[in-house]
Design a protein around this nucleic acid. Structure first.
Lengths: 222, 222
DNA sequence: ATGAAAGTTGAACCGAGTTTCAACTTGTGA
DNA sequence: TCACAAGTTGAAACTCGGTTCAACTTTCAT
């Protein structure tokens, strides 16, 4: 799918003067030493595995902390709850998908071809990170706000690319509603192709993306 | 909210000889009297509301039985577990979506127009039954087999229609993989347009379906 | 009318998993 | 070196909701 979240993150300021660093941890629970930083990372990595394999409901804090090889109580040094660590993960995964796709769509032949590349890149990512797919999907129920943000920003990115295509005279312009419909349609297409050919089965990403893109470009009519 | 769940199953053969009654209840827990039938219906209707509003995790058996105005223990007369009633609901919802769309796509202008009607019908359904959308989505985690069956059969139906279109010379034929890619792409498109314009916001179903279908038919290229 | 089968009831049982907390260890700046 | 802050530990408290079950009521075929 398209790149995601264009959040030019306001936290990553060099001097760290004002900006609240958007830490993966819960509010007021950011680590203050290198040791803490390392422990937090261990917990996040473990949580990704745990949630990805067992789903939110069947996952447990014990499952996370034992994978991370830290004590149960340590978890609460960095997160307020099971939901909180899940939400942190969603933000993180959302960014990862975007960061994976972004470089792969540079230097495309034209704007529609850009969508082909985005899809192929997304399919490869999904195949290698099925857990990520699962976590973002499950966010619909565990972290609805994060879920919505993820997809709305993803759709917005696609819409921007479509507007580019119109501006360059490569795409028909049928008004703003058409653009939004197209963006969501493309996103849904990508997600489901990811499910079918990335999570459940496997097919050459280029091939699938090429077929899908041909449909997008020329339509189905003979 | 009666009526959403229709238990009048074919297969409820009087002599019960062979026919496996595809009952909404768990194995060996089908009601045997009119009273039981009625109670089961109340529980299913209540479960739809409960799960639809609160999601699987936050729903409780007590929540279901109190909505249904039956005692807690009665639930276990018809279902083995919380998961079992959810799975029953998924099967039921899956059938409802199909039954809602089917009559609406009769007598379409051509095969591609059929897809436009299917989408419009689906969008109307989602808008009126957001709970259903939610339950099917959540099935990915609660009842993975039911989830997969739902989408695989839906994709198969679309693929069949596409093959029809090819047979009638209304669509380009690019081989079986292309057909499957197209089917899943169309399905994903529909689902996400349902999320965006049915669950989260509202837009005229015909308008959205028309935009999406134009893209499908002619492609994006100018 | 009658008894067996079907259905209903809800208190109590029970396990599982989240969260707390006070003692303990490690790291660091003065 | 010392003292204080940061981080770690895991047993135990606590909560909550799924599931069981034996007594009770209703239905229905004979």
């Amino acid at each position: 799918m398209g790149g995601l979240v264009d959040n030019s993150r306001p936290g990553a300021v060099a001097d760290g003067s004002v900006a609240r660093t958007i830490s993966p941890a819960s509010k007021g629970k950011a680590p203050r030493t290198a040791r803490g930083e390392k422990t937090l990372r261990k917990i996040l990595d473990a949580a990704l595995l745990e949630f990805g394999q067992r789903g939110f409901h069947d996952s447990s804090i014990v499952g996370i902390t034992s994978r991370a090889k830290v004590a149960l109580g340590t978890f609460y040094t960095y997160f307020d709850s099971k939901e909180a660590v899940f939400a942190a993960l969603v933000r993180d995964m959302s960014r990862q998908v975007r960061d994976h796709v972004a470089p792969d769509i540079e230097g495309s032949l034209d704007e529609i071809d850009r969508e082909r590349r985005a899809l192929a890149s997304y399919l490869r990512f999904v195949f290698e990170h099925k857990e990520v797919y699962r976590i973002i999907d499950e966010a619909e129920f565990v972290d609805p706000a994060g879920f919505r943000t993820h997809y709305e920003t993803a759709a917005a990115r696609i819409a921007t690319r479509l507007e580019d295509a119109v501006a360059k005279g490569q795409m028909r312009d049928d008004g703003p509603l058409a653009t939004e419909v197209r963006a969501w349609a493309i996103m849904g297409m990508n997600v489901f192709l990811g499910l079918r050919f990335g999570v459940w089965g496997r097919q050459d990403a280029e091939l699938v993306a090429t077929h899908a893109n041909a449909m997008l470009r020329k339509g189905l009519e003979r």
